[in-house]
Computed example of a mutant assay.
Amino acid sequence: MELYLLNTASGLKPCYDSDFEEKKKLKLGQTYKAKITLARNIEFHRKYFQLINTAWAYQNEATTKHFKENINCFRKTVEVAAGHCDTVYSLSRKEWIDVPKSIAFDKMDDAEFQNLYDRVKDVLFSVFLRHISEYDFMNNLSNF
């Protein structure tokens, strides 16, 4: 079980309804062991995926077919192009290839994630969104 908790003067408080529902499963009077870590900004994480989703929506049919109509392939390709990858040797291809690193919450802090966001945005506008106004595009993200 993993919860997002806010530290208050009266104790730890669940941040979201889903966290509250999970906390309700804990039995009163029982002792639990918890690992406390500073959570990465969940809203910024959502904004990142909105950036990817919006960029994907701007792609033409040929581009989406190139990525097998799979937004996750598109996201990982952009992350590799942004340098967020490890280089490994492919035995089947007999060559070195780049594979995307994890963007999981426990793998990156806020500063690293902000850096990734900025580099991904640069890749999107230099490769996939060259003919789109950044101002217009960013207006589509204005709800974040």
Rank of each mutant, 00 (worst) to 15 (best):
D106Q: 14
C85K: 07
I103D: 00
Y48N: 05
L124Q: 00
V120M: 06
D106A: 12
C85R: 03
T54V: 10
R75Y: 04
V99W: 05
V80E: 02
S90P: 07
N115I: 08
E95P: 02
Q59G: 03
A39E: 03
D106P: 03
K107C: 08
K68Q: 14
L116R: 01
Y48K: 01
F105M: 10
H84A: 04
F67K: 07
E112T: 08
A81E: 14
S126M: 04
Q114K: 15
L38T: 13
T54E: 12
L38I: 14
G83M: 02
V123Q: 08
N115G: 06
Y58T: 00
K76G: 03
A57F: 12
N72M: 12
K101T: 03
N70G: 02
D109M: 03
R40M: 09
Y58I: 01
H45Y: 11
S126I: 02
V99R: 13
N60Q: 08
E43V: 01
A57P: 01
Y58F: 15
S126Q: 09
E43N: 12
A81P: 00
N115Y: 11
H66V: 05
K101F: 07
M108S: 06
Q50M: 14
A104Y: 10
F113A: 04
A82Y: 05
A57L: 12
V127Y: 07
T64N: 04
R130M: 11
N41K: 09
K76D: 08
K121I: 00
L91H: 14
V123Y: 00
I42Q: 09
E69D: 15
T63M: 14
F113Y: 10
E95D: 10
H131M: 09
Y89N: 08
P100R: 07
Y89R: 11
N60M: 07
N72V: 12
K121Y: 07
E69T: 11
W96R: 11
F113W: 01
L38Q: 13
V127G: 07
I42N: 03
I71E: 05
T37A: 05
Y89T: 10
R93M: 13
N115S: 15
L116T: 02
D118E: 15
D98M: 10
N53P: 00
E43M: 07
